[in-house]
Design a protein around this nucleic acid. Structure first.
Length: 817
RNA sequence: GCCCGGGUGGCGAAACAGGCAGACGCAACGGACUUAAAAUCCGUUGACCCGCAAGGGUCGUGCGGGUUCGACCCCCGCCCCGGGCACCA
């Protein structure tokens, strides 16, 4: 048969059409097979924006396909269409997605809300435009409200002027909005809804141990740092001549005899009561300066209140200051400054000429001289000049001094976290409405469950300014109070879209349930997720929220697992021209263009081939072209050899056949091992290329003794990397697909074995010759051969052989003197 | 400043257990086919040196040491790049 040219458009369209209505990816109900749940982190099935997104699928989809072929019952919501044809995206999306959203729906909303385009995010958009999904977000919200896990309070929150909305702490990067990298976030005091993620702070931290080994170390580390648990002591310093007490938090109560002042954050509630009118303006200026969050290092700045506080341990009178480096959001918003033993306090006190008083000496050393000290001594040591605790090691003093405070009622041991409650209020149109009603008489009233979902009104004008756009929609806002029936106002804040992504993967297990978010039994079968795949940028966003959500659902009795995903794989970014691909840099390669030019198969293949998946990869059009050429070579090889699969003269296998089968089984071994261990698909694909190079070089000597097996296994091995073209070749070979439902081929170790090896001979570690030996030769035979080799001779002639090393079938090294 | 990664040809990379450094691909160059181009196919390609040639030699995995018969790999000390955290008391 003459070879066929590789027309990716024709092939991909054909197979897409052929199977678009078949439910190929549905896992089997009540299957006895081992289950496997693999999921990519961006939960939209198609229409990838750029090839950076495609990479995510290429990896997860290759793995899912391999697992299918290996006989697992796989839940993989992306499936075949993860990377579909551009013209057909809408149809694919419509069919595949469990929430049955429609692409046109999204497009319309997008057009209608051009002004909101900046907050556009595919993964969450899917969920947020879907009323059924609102319903369960709202349902969860009400459950949390009942349990005190959702609450409303006035708080200083991050405000992005560009988005015109509040942001969670996790969504502020370098003082700027995570979507607008050059827009500094402002601080505003607003009434906001929070979810009490801090109730799970300890558990989120402790359960990191369960994830070790399965999650990348750096993600766990980032989460640990983010949670930022620290154990310490709270101590009250009464303010002289007033009834007020300043409560400070310290992890080093053992240094308290060295405290030479107390410092408040400028936002601290006591400040207003302590300062005179002459300080009001400077304090306000300090707050404003910090709210602007200059990205550069803020110079330490302090204001003396004129008041003094009493150190309860020694009765000493210390001045009370206000300073810009004290954070209201951490600890109690007030500290005791111990300049001798804390870097920041040292810098501050030297700047303002406050006393530096060392009270900790190194073990075996002496107290530093405060006159000549140039840096604080921050380590543990031995406590001195500290009354009854003098001479005690720091650790012990910390413990006993804390107990002393508790006994005398002026302090206690305390744990603080860097982690804050999750602010979920957004002044956006886009998102799940928060299902509560504000009543003048009854206060905050939950929307009754049978009135869910609260749906967004259509035709809302997006002003991009001030408060939620929903406030301008009277028919949405004006409601009757469900309790007293009086006039009331509906909450106009919507939920952070990270709420949606916190549990979407549970819904995949039971997407059409209209009585509950999902059936716990169905979820119990699939969870935990065996393998989750996504970018590292979600380490302290989505990945911490979804852990919290899982624990919350477990406490509601909905799930049994403590953690959402056993294993997490973070793939590298796609780089182009040395820069991370992003909309703001304008260097994106659109997936649609790429599919048009090279095809979906080429896109996957090149993304997997260019670098190991955990590493960043460089996108080059030329490289993609190379991958495309390879698929063409395979396709032409198969099509011109299909009619040589049978017939022939019945003679036994030729040398070429034996060679081809050996290489075939070696390749299969290699790829199988790559899938089972480290997912270095770049070397798998390189092995396939080597196989093709070998096959084409001996092609004319191949006979039906090897061709059927070679073609079959070649196609099966390529399946995870190029699923469309593989279906076409399978059909050309007279077989019926889908190919990924075929079993993964087993390799034969005997066939894969080489019978002879060319091994290097070294003299004193330097390569001098290569000799040909039979595999498994006896050491003595190999050494005899090596020592008598004509190229080795000159180097050992007249010298004494001290030692010989033989690594079986690998190398000979002769040591001479 | 602290904590993670990483540094190998012109480029992306490979070397999985301390055992032939540079597999596989891109780019480049030479050739075949073609009116031409594209596509395709064949060949060369780490650097330097010797040789007309066949061939041979030296160097080479960021830098400097060490361990070892043997080091991209292990140890010690640096340099550089990327990422995360950073007044967290």
């Amino acid at each position: 048969m003459p070879e066929k040219s590789y027309d990716h458009k024709e092939i991909e369209l054909k197979w897409y059409q052929r199977w678009k209505n078949a439910d190929l990816y549905k896992p089997e109900e009540n299957s006895a097979k081992p289950k496997y749940y693999v999921l990519e982190m961006l939960p939209y099935p198609s229409g990838a924006l750029h090839i950076g997104h495609v990479r995510n699928y290429s990896i997860g989809d290759a793995l899912a396909r391999y697992k299918w072929m290996r006989g697992f019952n796989v839940l993989h919501p992306m499936g075949w269409d993860a990377f579909g044809l551009p013209a057909e995206n809408a149809a694919i999306a419509n069919r595949r997605h469990p929430y049955e959203w429609t692409m046109s729906n999204i497009r319309n909303m997008k057009r209608q809300h051009q002004r909101m385009a900046f907050s556009y995010d595919w993964s969450r958009e899917i969920a947020t435009c879907e009323p059924e999904y609102y319903r369960w977000n709202q349902w969860f919200f009400l459950k949390m409200l009942e349990r005190g896990l959702a609450y409303r309070k006035k708080a200083l929150v991050n405000w992005c002027p560009e988005c015109a909305t509040v942001l969670a702490n996790e969504q502020v990067v370098d003082g700027c909005c995570w979507r607008h990298e050059s827009t500094p976030v402002e601080m505003r005091a607003l009434d906001q809804w929070f979810l009490k993620i801090t109730a799970y702070a300890d558990e989120l931290l402790e359960d990191i141990a369960q994830l070790e080994g399965g999650w990348p170390e750096r993600v766990l580390l980032m989460q640990k740092n983010w949670i930022g648990r620290s154990e310490g002591t709270e101590v009250d310093f009464p303010v002289e001549g007033s009834g007020h007490k300043i409560r400070v938090f310290t992890t080093r109560v053992d240094t308290i005899f060295g405290a030479t002042c107390v410092i408040l954050a400028p936002e601290h509630p006591l400040v207003a009561q302590l300062i005179g009118p002459e300080l009001e303006a400077p304090v306000k200026a300090m707050i404003d300066a910090r709210a602007r969050k200059d990205p550069g290092d803020l110079e330490k700045e302090g204001l003396f209140t004129g008041k003094y506080a009493i150190n309860p341990y020694n009765g000493e009178r210390v001045p009370v200051w206000i300073a810009n480096f004290i954070l209201m959001g951490y600890g109690t918003g007030a500290i005791m400054a111990v300049p001798a033993h804390d870097e920041r306090d040292f810098e501050f006190c030297r700047q303002y000429g406050l006393e530096v008083r060392p009270v900790i000496r190194p073990v075996g050393g002496e107290l530093a001289d405060p006159q000549t000290m140039t840096a604080a001594f921050t380590e543990y040591g031995v406590v001195e000049r500290s009354g009854q605790w003098s001479g005690m090691p720091s650790e012990l003093a910390r413990q006993q001094m804390t107990e002393f405070a508790e006994k005398n009622g002026f302090g206690k041991s305390a744990v603080t976290y860097r982690l804050k409650d999750w602010g979920i209020s957004r002044q956006r149109y886009w998102g799940t409405p928060i299902p509560v009603i504000h009543c003048g008489k009854c206060g905050i009233v939950a929307t009754p469950e049978d009135q869910l979902p609260v749906i967004l009104p259509p035709h809302v004008e997006i002003t991009g300014r001030g408060r939620s756009p929903l406030e301008n929609v009277p028919e949405f806002v004006n409601v009757k109070c469900p309790q007293c029936g009086g006039a009331a106002r509906r909450e106009t804040d919507t939920m952070d879209t990270f709420v949606d992504s916190s549990w979407y993967f549970y819904r995949y297990c039971d997407p059409h349930n209209d009585r509950a978010p999902f059936d716990p039994d169905k979820v119990a079968y699939w969870f935990e997720i065996d393998q989750y795949i996504g970018g590292v940028e979600h380490a302290i966003l989505h990945l911490i929220y979804s852990r919290f959500w899982t624990k919350m659902m477990r406490d509601l009795g909905l799930v049994k697992n403590d953690e959402p995903a056993k294993r997490l794989f973070t793939q590298g970014m796609v780089i182009r021209d040395g820069a991370k691909m992003s909309k703001s840099k304008g260097n994106v390669v659109s997936a649609d263009e790429m599919i048009e030019r090279f095809g979906a198969d080429t896109g996957r293949l090149f993304e997997l081939f260019a670098a190991p998946p955990e590493k960043d990869m460089d996108w080059t059009d030329a490289g993609a072209n190379g991958a495309h050429a390879f698929l063409g070579r395979v396709y032409r090889f198969v099509t011109r050899n299909v009619d040589r699969m049978s017939g022939g003269d019945g003679a036994g296998p030729t040398d070429a056949d034996r060679k081809a089968l050996r290489k075939l089984h070696q390749t299969l071994k290699k790829i199988t091992e790559d899938f089972e261990t480290r997912w270095h698909f770049n070397t798998s694909i390189a092995a396939l290329m080597e196989l093709m190079n070998e096959l084409t070089s001996i092609e004319k000597d191949l006979t039906p003794a090897s061709i059927p097996e070679v073609l079959e296994k070649l196609v099966l091995m390529l399946e995870p990397f190029a699923p469309y073209v593989v279906e076409e070749m399978w059909e050309q070979m007279g077989r019926t697909g889908p190919v990924f439902r075929q079993p993964w081929p087993e390799y034969d170790p005997e066939l894969a074995k080489e019978d002879a090896a060319e091994i290097p001979v070294q003299v004193n570690g330097k390569l001098r010759a290569r000799i040909l030996i039979a595999f498994g030769s006896a050491e003595a035979d190999v050494l005899r051969l090596a020592l008598s080799d004509s190229k080795v001779q000159p180097y050992i002639d007249g010298k004494q052989v001290i030692k010989t090393i033989y690594v079986p079938d690998r190398l000979v090294n002769i040591v001479v003197k």
